[in-house]
Design a protein around this nucleic acid. Structure first.
Lengths: 336, 336
DNA sequence: AAGCCGTATGAAAGCACTTTCAGTTTAACA
DNA sequence: TGTTAAACTGAAAGTGCTTTCATACGGCTT
């Protein structure tokens, strides 16, 4: 019917450039595996012919899409970013693409969760710091979409967990051992949105528990809640520092908020750690810069791990579900 | 090994309905050519298995959501992250997916640059802080892939530019006006990798120029180069601060490195800004936290803008190329 | 000189379907 | 009853690509 020139295939390119089709494929998919000269020859041929690989054939031959999706709260907090970095590191090593779905509302989350399994345009999913509902979990596993949850547990899905409560314990122990007698807490413990998780409450719980077990009290007046914003964190910090009987130790449930405390303290001429001790949580990059004593939750590592668990589930059939509990440890620096 | 329920293929349907795969295919593609009873049997099996021809699913997925790719140096620097955040904000508003290609070697970059336009699995591309070669640019535009460059200029491609040299001018002007007489510089000005850009050199150039124009000198001994790492930045900061005739003002070409200076200064008991002024560059999140005087290059905004330019080029035919120059301004805080 | 390594390549075996081709029923007609 | 056209059907041959496996080649070491 059509005696005219068909659209060029990989075979045409191979013939023109004098190599085998395998090499063409390699030039396109793993260029680092082919000699620079060959690469150039092939690219020339490709350009000359205007060759475009047929997506459909490609998808067929490849056992998947080579893409991993990450659902993450819209990345505003440094800790998310740092996790993401870990994920990116693992994926790029394994030659997977990273597709990011920022979530900033329940609708958003629901939309993604319902469309992703249908579209199947990713081979696996990492859900970071988001609470998912039973029905979504079911949909995901029914459609065979491998998923790893970070910071949230669901039977039937892999998860990477942080023992926030234990983190709270660690902080309290440390402060007690340092000889402190009066304590405060700053964190975001407002009733969260439906889809969000509340690690901060667990941190508080552990903190309080250990304090009480040791015979210390954490009065209501010393527990201040502030949303995760610059302004409000500072206001809360200000309130704590202006308390009639100011505590000698503050646990801020995130490094970000610990920074706020440090800043206000400086403004008020309160010396850290002499007048007051501050301990944060997360160990984000800057913590080290400002010498903040904090709980490291190995953010990079948790991302890396999530990606690795996911890939192993995808590529090695029938690996069992994993619930990894990441260790937490206190990093002693200059603020407490 | 384990017969995990992979997505069903045409073979599974064939087995379940007791006919050959060809028949299944016919039921799907030319139903009038198959017996009504067979047709029903097959349909039942298809429903039972939830079978969806893969190609179809993929095609649907492809046309549905748009996808934008971002090529970025492997995200280690806070400034990249902050830009990315801007990009993500715009894209998610416009319902585009964000695919990230971290680049950590020239090979990586080349590989992506040659395969992305061909595969056409993204609708547009944002290339952040990477130098691209002529030939790549040509290939990109030849294949009709819309592209926006950030921090690098190439005729024929949209770009979002930062006037780093002017940033250097601003810093010098400010410091001079504050009455400083002796100056230093800290930044990474080593010969960079082939694919990387060198904004830091421009910053230095502008700084030096303005100083000289005003009759001040910036001796070689006061220009220290250090790679963008914690350790080496601190070592360099230490050297500067230990100079026999220490300068009264330091321009650190990135906030990250300014933090290093501040830290070492604190260790040495040097008061900032009384004994010494420090100005950074970037205005990353933490700059505000630590009250660092710095040059804001509107990182979030640059990312947002890049995404917007890209989307407008994609969706509204024939928009002209844009070379946007982002304004830079000095944010006066407590360190200078 | 023999052994060993690492890189670069091609042959060939998939992948999930579609299509062709030849064979089998079935049904209708002489 | 014998013929034959029509209606189905499955085996097998593509389709355009990826990936595994094996080989070849140029160093290096002993």
């Amino acid at each position: 019917m059509t005696p005219t020139k068909k659209t060029p295939t990989i075979y045409d390119v191979a013939k023109l450039s004098g190599v085998s089709i395998a090499t063409i494929s390699r030039v396109l998919n793993s260029p680092d595996k082919v000699n620079a000269e060959t690469h150039k020859k092939v690219m020339t041929a490709i350009d000359r012919l205007g060759f475009v690989p047929k997506a459909e054939a490609r998808a067929r031959a490849m056992q998947g899409t080579g893409r991993i999706g990450v659902l993450t709260p819209f990345f505003t907090a440094p800790s998310f970013v740092q996790r993401l970095r870990g994920v990116a590191a693992s994926l790029s090593k394994a030659n997977y693409e990273l597709v990011i779905y920022p979530v900033d509302s329940l609708d958003h989350l629901q939309g993604h969760l319902s469309s992703i399994p249908l579209m199947k345009n990713v081979d696996g999913l990492i859900i970071m710091s988001l609470a998912i509902e039973d029905i979504d979990a079911k949909r995901l596993s029914a459609s065979g979409m491998e998923t790893v949850l970070i910071e949230y547990k669901h039977r039937g899905m892999n998860s990477i967990l942080i023992d926030d409560e234990h983190g709270g314990n660690l902080v309290a122990e440390y402060l007690i051992q340092k000889g402190h007698k009066t304590f405060a807490f700053l964190g975001d413990i407002e009733p969260p949105e439906k889809f969000s998780i509340h690690p901060v409450r667990s941190r508080l719980k552990g903190y309080k528990q250990t304090l009480q077990d040791a015979g210390f009290s954490l009065p209501k007046s010393n527990i201040h809640s502030a949303p995760y914003t610059q302004k409000e964190s500072r206001e809360a910090a200000f309130e704590i520092l202006q308390l009639p009987k100011p505590p000698t130790a503050i646990f801020a449930a995130s490094d970000f908020q610990a920074l706020a405390v440090m800043k206000i303290a400086r403004q008020l001429g309160i010396k850290i750690p002499d007048d007051m001790a501050v301990v944060g949580f997360d160990d984000i990059d800057v913590a080290e810069h400002v010498d903040l004593t904090t709980i490291s939750q190995h953010l990079d590592e948790s991302g890396r791990l999530a990606a690795e668990v996911l890939l192993s589930r995808i590529n090695e059939g029938g690996r069992p579900l994993q619930h990894v509990n990441l260790p937490l440890n206190l990093i002693e620096r200059a603020t407490a």
